[in-house]
Design a protein around this nucleic acid. Sequence first.
DNA 1: GAGTTTGAAACT
DNA 2: CAGTTTCAAACTC
Length: 166
Amino acid sequence: MAAAQNQLPPVMVLLHMHQHQHLPASRKPESPKSRLYCECFASGSYCDGCKNCYNNVENESARNDAVEATLERNPNAFRLKIASSPHGTRDSQEEAILAKHNKGCHCKKSGSLKKHCECFQANILCSENCKCMECKNYEGSEGDRLSFKVIRPTTWHIFNRLQMLQ
DNA sequence: GAGTTTGAAACT
DNA sequence: CAGTTTCAAACTC
């Protein structure tokens, strides 16, 4: 099963497997105003069960307006945030490490070692795309060793699931 | 479960 | 572009 050129490495898919844990029908208005703050919308999918929500088939025109406005601001808004390694390695473990966050993170206080950091959350090292402060999420740092030991199993768990689906 | 912290996205 | 606000998730207690 040769990996297709544009096949998504596990870390890329990982970002799209977020839990859609919207607040249950309380007051979480996923209006077009919210846009990318809503993870469902950000991932290009519809919401389900939110109140005052326009991100569904019933409000397709409003939704399309929001999509257009979002794309106008950032043409890559709905594309995956993680670029695979330029080396095109077939080693999925190595691939996950060499992947980069396209926009990079802007962390200030977490050292890019908490899940608030998109790089850390995707289980990748920070890159030159990042503008984080006091970053510890780089190869060889203490944080790198720690974070990869802690998080790695999650990535492989999901990766294995994806392989089962194929 | 309530309150706080965090940083992406939105906004100015 | 930089600074600020909004938002929802991560985190703490």
